[in-house]
Amino acid sequence: MSDLIYISKRFIHLIFLSLFISFLTFSLMKADFKIPKIKLDIAFIHLHTKEIQIKTGDPLADLRLNPAISAAQIEAESKRLGLNKGFFYQYLTWLSNLIKGDLGYTQANQKVIDVIIPALKNTLILNLCAIFFSWLIAIPLGIICAIKQNSWLDLSVRFLLSSLMAMPSFILAIFMLLFALYSGWFPIGGLTSVVIDEMNFFERLIDITRHLFIPVSILTLLSIPSIQRQMRANLLEILDRPYIRTALAKGLKFDIVIWKHALSNAINPLITLFGFEFAGLFAGSALIEMVLAYPGLGLLTLEAVRKQDINIVMANLLLGSLMLVLGNLLADLVLKKIDPRIK
C-alpha cells in the first residue's frame, strides 16, 4: 500500500515537473526579447554593455531562403503552424491539445505521433540491447577485477577500459565502420536490408541482428568502463570492511561471502546509476545514430531542434522527463527491495 502511495506521489510530481519543463523549453525555443543597454557608473564600478537581442531562429528559414517559394506559401505555412499568434496563445494551444491527447503536427504537416513512434521503437531496441550487454559484461568483469585486485587480469582490463573511456564515441564508430567495411560481415548503417519483406521470421531476426551489431557494440563498449569501475571500486571498499573479514574468519565459503554479504551491499550505487541510464534510453545515442545512419529518435530530435520543429521537440522532452521519473522510481523500488535499511 505504501508503495502505491509512493508511486502516485511520484506521478503527481511528474505532472508538475513536465509542466515546468515544457514551459521552460517552449520559452527557450520561442525566445524573442531584448536586454537593454546598461550604463552603470557608481564609484569605481563602470559597467557599459551594448543592447543584446535574444532571439531564437526562424522555423521557416529553409523556406524563406528558397527563391522558388512564394510569399503566399510562407504566409500559409506560418498560419498553419500558428507562428503569427502570441507566445502564450501558442503555448496554451499546445497544452490544451496535449491534454486532449494530441501532440500536434510537425513542420512537414505529419502527425507528431506518427513520426515519433517508429523512431522510438528503433531507439528502444538499440538502447535496451546496449544496456543489457553492457551490464552483462561490466558487472561480472567488475567483480572479478575486484576479487583479483592488481593481478595481470585486473591491470590489463584497467588499461583497456581506460583507453575506451578516453576514446570519443564517433572515433569508435568510425573504427567499427572500417571494421565492417574491411571484413564485409556487417552492413553499413540502417536497421533492415532491402529484401526484408521477402524474408521469413528467422531470416528477419538474423538480418536485424546483423544491422544492430555495430551500433550495439559501440554503445556497449562505451558504457562498460564506467559501470565496471563503479562495480570494482564499490566491491573493493566492501571487501575491506570488518564484517567480511569476520565472515571469512568464521569459515564461510568465499563464494557465499562475496555473493551474499559483499555484493548485496556493493550494488546500491549501481542501481541508482541504472535509474539514470533508463532515463537516457531515448536520447543517449544521437551521435551514434547520426554517424551510422540509424533511424532512431535521437537523430530525429537533433534535427527537430535544429529546424525549430517545436512539436517534435516538446513531445520528446515529455518522453524524456517521463523516463527520468520512471527510471528513478524503478531504481528506488528495487533499492527498497534489496536494502531493508531504506524506507
Partner: peptide, 22 residues
Amino acid sequence: NRLIYSYIQDDSADIFKFLAKE
C-alpha cells in the same frame, strides 16, 4: 526493377556506404 534512396545524415556514412557497395 527497383530504385532505392537511402537517407544519409553524415559524410562519413555516405562514403562508407558507397565503398561497401551499398
